[in-house]
Amino acid sequence: MTATTLDRPVRTQEKPSMLKTFLSRNGSMMPTFAAILILILLFAGAEAFLRGDFITPRNISALLLDNAYLLVLAVGMTFVILTGGIDLSVGSVMAFTGILGARMLAEGAPVAVTVPTMLLGGAAIGLLIGILVQYFGVQPFIASLAGLFLGRGLAYIVSLSSIKVEEPAILWLQSTRMSFGGWYITPTGIIALSAVAIAAFVLHLTRFGRTIYAVGGNEQSARLMGLKVGRVKIAAYTISGFCAGLAGLILTAYSGAGYPRNGIGTELDAIAAVVIGGTLLIGGRGYVLGSMVGVFVYGTIKTIISFMGAEQSWMQIIVGALLLLFIVVQRAIVARSDGRR
């Protein structure tokens, strides 16, 4: 090794300040920190406005319960967006797997068959989108739009109307409340949090996860670095599809029924949550924990508006404004990091 060492080191760092080191290492976390800040501000604002009635164990626990399906969708979406893609199909895939599960149970299929079918059905549609994107060079927007129509159409084929679910094992997911003091959590909440934890592990501690980031950062470079770009991209869409299937299960348990018109526009809510959570739409930068924060920001705004008894359309205006703000902030961050090169 010493043979190749230069007479003097190329660049020796003087002791940089703690803050500088932190920023040079964690610049891409800034949007996520901003999302956490906004979440705190929302809580504080609502708490002040509602005179201490807002931050209660019951409300916070309900936040997770009510948004568990969205959280799972956002987890899958994070994988896809990190590769620089987009998945518009998740809302209708969730509806399809939900109504498929409800119908199967109504026809007498056992839970042990129904649940895997729901999950694999979602994953299969994701796989299809991934193959379209990777091998047929279709734009992710178009490929997943096809998936959106496919999912919705399949949902209507399964049933045109709502099917009630009576299966106790499914309803158990929703109705079981494990309480600690005023706090509670349902199995659906545990599933959603597990999805976040597993995704965080995969993205940060496996080679597969790091390849996702590399592909999103520069696909060409990733390929030249000898990484398996094609496989990883297809896997990202498959994961998103699987998560849509899982969200279908959670939503079915939550509403006690399958309904083919479920989740219209929910893909956009998932994308919004991911972006608000600090993941860049151009790919390569972002955190799944940020997406969780994004979902909670989204859910909190919704709760506040219903507490205030205001029109639900305000929800969309506020989420729209937040999205705009975050995209501008992200642009600035990207421009800054490009400018430094």
Binding site: T211, S221, M225
Partner: peptide
């Protein structure tokens, strides 16, 4: 041809990260 969105160390080691079990 590296990934500017990742750290220096990752760019050096990408695809060859040291692992303990399956975790990097």
């Amino acid at each position: 041809n590296l990934c500017t969105n990742l750290t220096v160390g990752e760019n050096v080691m990408l695809g060859h990260e040291k692992r303990r079990g399956n975790a990097i």
